[in-house]
């Protein structure tokens, strides 16, 4: 079977780009521990999914990885450098596209460049050629309200990409979309992220989404509100290419490995 056994750590010899070491996180400065002793690794161009039930602290972990909040214990390392509590080193994309209604799409996606001090004209020149690649050609001068949900999310992804970081954190990025758009967009995202060499950490509570997208799935378990801090229940490595080659199909969802991965994740979730 192409899927690794439970609690396997990634069998990747390449050093990770982003690494969380023994993170313990709290909502209120230490009194209430939400996440205890979590470690995870993200390699180059990898898609890593964090799966857990609602309220288990997935967004809290992403906030810590982004530097928006500092862990009470542990470290977040980007290529070995400690970035704990220092935002701006990794990109972040949320469930809501958060496009600014008062800015045209071109200016929305240019925002990270403008924030870094690029003149508006230069920023537009950098962003404009990417519109076609992101399936956004012709939307440059439109307002966000003129775009469909899927297009808005692609624009948000282009903005995330233009932050120029090696790692993107995605907080349930497709959950606000309708089912068909969601499936289309997540396969589009995986292809684009690999093309661009962007490593991703995606949080989701949709097991199918995690198995479809991820190279590795960290299954989280715990109920912080009931006083049980969240920990990593297990890690599932997804060997998509090998599974498709073995099964002789070009859709991972049709392989026995897909079902096995899904079962493992569900078992770990309890």
């Amino acid at each position: 079977m192409a899927t690794d056994s439970l609690n396997n750590m990634p069998g990747n010899d390449v050093p990770p780009i982003l690494e969380a070491r023994h993170l313990t996180l709290s909502w209120d400065g230490g009194a209430h521990v939400v996440v205890r002793d979590i470690s995870l690794e993200v390699g180059e161009s990898e898609v890593v999914c964090l799966v857990g039930k609602s309220g288990c602290g997935k967004t809290t972990i992403l906030h810590a990885l982004s530097g928006l909040t500092a862990p009470i214990e542990g470290q977040v390392l980007l290529r070995g450098a400690d970035i704990s509590g220092r935002p701006g080193k990794v990109s972040y994309m949320l469930q809501k596209d958060l496009l600014i209604p008062s800015k045209r799409i071109i200016d929305n996606v240019c925002l990270p460049l403008v924030i870094k001090g690029a003149p508006r004209k230069d920023a537009r020149e950098i962003a404009a050629p990417l519109f076609e690649r992101f399936d956004l050609a012709g939307t440059e001068q439109k307002w966000p309200s003129q775009l469909s949900g899927g297009m808005r999310q692609r624009a948000a992804f282009l903005r995330t990409y233009l932050q120029g970081n090696e790692v993107a954190l995605l907080d349930e990025p497709f959950s606000a979309l309708d089912a068909i758009t969601r499936v289309d967009l997540r396969s589009w995202y995986c292809d684009m992220a690999r093309d661009l060499g962007l490593a991703s950490v995606v949080i989701t509570h949709d097991v199918d989404e995690a198995v479809s997208m991820a190279d590795r799935i960290y299954v989280l378990s715990g109920t912080p509100r009931a006083g049980v801090p969240t920990t990593v229940a297990g890690v599932v490595n997804v060997r998509r290419e090998q599974a498709m080659a073995q099964a002789g199909v070009d859709d991972f969802a049709l392989t026995p490995s897909y079902v096995a991965c899904k079962r493992q994740v569900l078992e770990l979730l309890g």
């Binding site: 928006l68 958060l98 924030i115």
Partner: peptide, 22 residues
């Protein structure tokens, strides 16, 4: 939207930039 402010901070925006842009 506090999420918008968080997003701006992950882009490295200053308080003034958050005020002017958002």
């Amino acid at each position: 939207d506090p999420d918008m402010i968080d997003l701006m901070r992950t882009m490295g925006a200053s308080d003034l930039q958050i005020f002017l842009q958002v």
